[in-house]
Amino acid sequence: MGVLDYLRGFRVTFDKLFEERVTTEYPEEKSPKPDRLHGRHVLNRYEDGMEKCIGCELCAGVCPAKCIYVRGQDNPLDEPVSPGERFGYIYEINYLRCIHCDLCVEACPTQAITETKLFEFSFTNRSDAIYTKDELLVGDDGLPQNLPWEDWRPGEDVATSAWMRATSPAGDADYVGTVGWSGELGYGVRAPEVGQFGEDPEPPAAEVDPVDEGGHH
């Protein structure tokens, strides 16, 4: 132990000046968002434009934070909103309570509610935090609505519903990699993940030995 030990330590920090930066210049530059990221929810439509939500309230029932308020109603006979008898008449999510666990996405029987990758939104008052059906429903082109206080970037709306696709086999190996969902307006039928059977059946041996000469003290 001597002065040199001090200097060695300072050398580590000094060398960082010349090493590659790991900082991402946020918000101009954003880290790429993985497929399964849990963000703000959207209510999807079928490829023919009809809403998928049937107002069944399963999402409200499973939500551990009790942040979803749904009421169903009969489809008006002349202008049905969703295929079938029932549609989601009132649909609100309170984002001050939502913990983004996406149990609602797993519970929805029609894949109506899925989540986008957007988590960059903030409000200045509580009522803005309660997203109503108008704000959650995708537009006529199937794209999520870009509300004024949300920071959407190009390409962020593409990889939605990934969590629903990831959990769709529900643990059963036979259903890994199979499609079990309907098409979404604007995106068609999304591809499933390749899954464990699409990977290399022989996993490569790990070559890294993390116990190096640093070793134990």
Binding site: R36, E193, V194, Q196, E199
Partner: peptide
């Protein structure tokens, strides 16, 4: 309870 929610994603290795 029962396992994990989803399989590991593609490319996890």
């Amino acid at each position: 309870p029962g396992g994990v929610a989803a399989d590991l994603p593609d490319g996890w290795r």
